[in-house]
Simulated assay, not measured.
Amino acid sequence: MVIKNLENKIRLVTIICGFFLLGCIIISVSSIWTAKTMVNDAQQKIYVLDSNVPILVQRTTMEETLDVEARSHIEMFHHFFFTLAPDDKYIKYTMNKAMYLVDETGLAQYNTLKEKGFYNNIMGTSAVFSIFCDSIKLDEKKMEFTYYGRQRIERRTNILTRELVTAGKLKRVPRTDNNPHGLLIVNWRTLLNKDIEQKTKANY
Rank of each mutant, 00 (worst) to 15 (best):
T125E: 07
L184F: 02
V57S: 02
K9G: 00
P174N: 07
Y147G: 05
E104S: 06
T176E: 05
Y47A: 09
D139I: 07
I122Y: 01
L164K: 06
T200K: 03
N5L: 12
I15F: 15
M143W: 05
E144H: 13
T14H: 04
R152G: 03
K45V: 07
I185F: 03
T200A: 02
T60W: 02
E144T: 14
T146G: 04
I159Y: 05
N203R: 12
T190A: 04
D67F: 15
Q43V: 03
T112K: 11
E104D: 06
R189K: 14
I10C: 02
A35C: 04
F132P: 00
I153W: 08
N40P: 00
T161S: 07
K142C: 02
Q58C: 00
G149S: 11
V39C: 02
D88V: 14
I136V: 15
A167E: 14
I27N: 10
I46Y: 00
M38R: 12
N8Y: 08
H78N: 15
I25D: 04
D195E: 10
D177V: 14
F118G: 00
S28F: 15
H181M: 10
R175F: 12
R155H: 07
N158R: 08
L66G: 03
W33Y: 14
Q44S: 05
A70Y: 09
I46M: 01
V186M: 02
K141Q: 12
E115Q: 08
F129S: 08
Q58I: 00
Y148Q: 06
L183T: 03
S130C: 03
K114G: 00
R156L: 11
R156S: 13
K201G: 01
N40R: 10
I196H: 01
K9C: 02
K137V: 11
